[in-house]
Design a protein around this nucleic acid. Structure first.
Length: 424
RNA sequence: GGAGAGGUGGCAGAGUGGUCGAAUGCACUGGUCUUGAAAACCAGCGGUCCUUUAUCGGUCCCGUGGGUUCGAAUCCCACCCUCUCCGCCA
């Protein structure tokens, strides 16, 4: 949610900034509603104030045993005016609220212009794509040849976009999770946290999945819960309705969780293999920081995600998302894309974002600034560190040999009983 | 799932229709005193939104949402949550 003060004082500036997202803000509609709101809110509060003071008078008269009928009649009249006024105010505020909570975050000044992912700006590349003296296979061919990845059975059990993994691949998957958690915990200073995978609607609103993107979520209607699309939702919402003290900041959490996405609207896209699944696992980093340090934190966080790829010796590049490709809540996002020999291209494996106060305002996540002694909004950030399924794919495709065996990256061997290779 | 008890400020805890946003204690902050500290004493000490350049002022908030009333922390309804016991169960 954007700052309502900013929307009042400088709506045109907001509209201009949002053009970077190729979004057109209906400035006139907002201004008209805002004018009405102001008029009616002031009138309503004046009526409330009048009612309160008159009612107190009644109490005083009665306690002295005097007759208060005249004032009681008067307040009755005020009350009916007040009812009308309140009803109108509620309606206007609901309309305004719906509009405002549907406005995406303002892109940071450093975000490049553009409309699609083709306009994203490459920041840096790391590592060199391995040259193969044979035709590299993709993870589907590799996994099925090994007999360790099984999409058909998953389809039988559930549906498409699910997977069953066996043996060495399942272990490799688990090793990746532990390796990532340990690295972020021990080297990057994140506190490990384990959270619910079902969350309520307030939590989804807090991080921005609701109300606009309900169709992307799995919803358990009977209980009103949602399956988390990312650990970002429960982890960031730990700070909802809280006022954190200065000395507990910054807060840095690392969390492994499954993620559930309906993938509505992605029909026909990435249907082959494990790239785009309804259920996948992710190690997520979340930071809650003071506003003045959030952009430094974004660089750090992105570096932490990159470090995992470096340790796995997987080539990647970092891009800054352009305005048109930026997520709803983010002010700035770096995507990290890993090299996949099977597809002969870079594919997203991590997304690291600074949300500034956008999520914090939605969920009232604050800290007490010792300089002002007032509660102020935090800045929130998160990034994948990394998407486990896609990392698994990257390892398989980058570490394959001619026979279709997978060499296990050295950093993962301690997690796999020092196994060095996955073979048939 | 069944039965019972309960949800009040950072914490504890009073408050069952009228100057109650809320006593009191603790914690915290500032001051006095002290060489310093402690103690004691004095003062301050929730959040939200609106109006305003700001102050001042006002609104709303006693789990949440409705309702009754001139007036609700207090009465009524629904829901949520916590605790205890029973049942079921990894």
């Amino acid at each position: 949610m954007l700052d309502p003060q900013l929307l009042r004082s400088d709506l045109d500036q907001v509209a201009t900034a949002l053009k970077k997202r190729n979004m057109v803000l209906d400035v006139d509609a907002i201004q008209q509603l805002e004018e009405k709101r102001k008029k009616i809110q002031v009138a309503t509060e004046e009526l409330q104030s009048l009612r309160n003071s008159k009612s107190k008078e009644i109490g005083q008269l009665k306690s002295r045993g005097e007759d208060a009928q005249a004032i009681m009649d008067e307040v009755s009249k005020i009350k009916s005016q007040l009812d009308d006024s309140t009803t109108e105010l509620d309606s206007i505020q609901t309309q305004l609220n719906d509009i405002v909570s549907g406005i995406p975050n303002i892109p940071h000044a450093s975000v490049p212009n553009g409309t699609t992912e083709d306009d994203n700006e490459e920041v840096r590349t790391w590592g060199e794509a391995r040259s193969f003296d044979f035709e590299p296979k993709d993870h589907v061919d590799l996994g099925e040849a090994l007999g360790l990845i099984d999409f058909e059975t998953a389809t039988k059990i559930t549906s498409s976009r699910f997977v069953v993994m066996h043996g060495g691949i399942a272990k490799l998957h688990r090793a990746l999770i532990q390796f990532m958690l340990d690295t972020h915990g021990e080297e990057h200073g994140y506190a490990e946290i384990n959270v619910p995978y079902l969350v309520n609607a307030d939590s989804c609103f807090g991080t921005g999945q609701l109300p606009k993107f309900e169709e992307d979520l799995f919803h358990i209607k009977e209980h009103g819960f949602y399956l988390i699309p990312t650990a970002e939702v429960p982890v960031t919402n730990t700070a909802r309705d809280e006022i954190l003290s200065n000395d507990e900041l910054p807060k840095k959490y690392v969390c492994h969780s499954p993620c559930f996405r309906s993938e509505a609207g992605s029909y026909g896209k990435d249907t082959r293999g494990m790239i785009r699944q309804h259920q996948f696992e992710k190690v997520e980093m979340v930071q809650l920081v003071k506003p003045d340090s959030s952009y430094d934190a974004l660089e750090d966080l992105t570096g932490h995600a990159e470090n995992i790829l470096k340790k796995l010796n997987l080539p990647y590049r970092v891009v800054t998302l352009c305005g048109g490709d930026l997520g709803f809540s983010a002010a700035k996002t770096y995507d990290i894309e890993v090299w996949l020999p099977g597809q002969n291209k870079y594919r997203e494996i991590s997304s690291c974002s600074n949300f500034e106060a956008f999520q914090a305002r939605r969920m009232k996540a604050r800290w007490r600034n010792p300089e002002t002694n007032k509660p102020e909004l935090l800045h929130t950030l998160n990034g994948s560190g990394l998407a486990v399924g896609r990392t698994l794919i990257a390892v398989m495709e980058n570490y394959q040999d001619k026979e279709g065996n997978i060499t296990i990256p050295e950093v993962l061997r301690p997690y796999m009983n020092n196994q060095t290779v996955i073979s048939k």
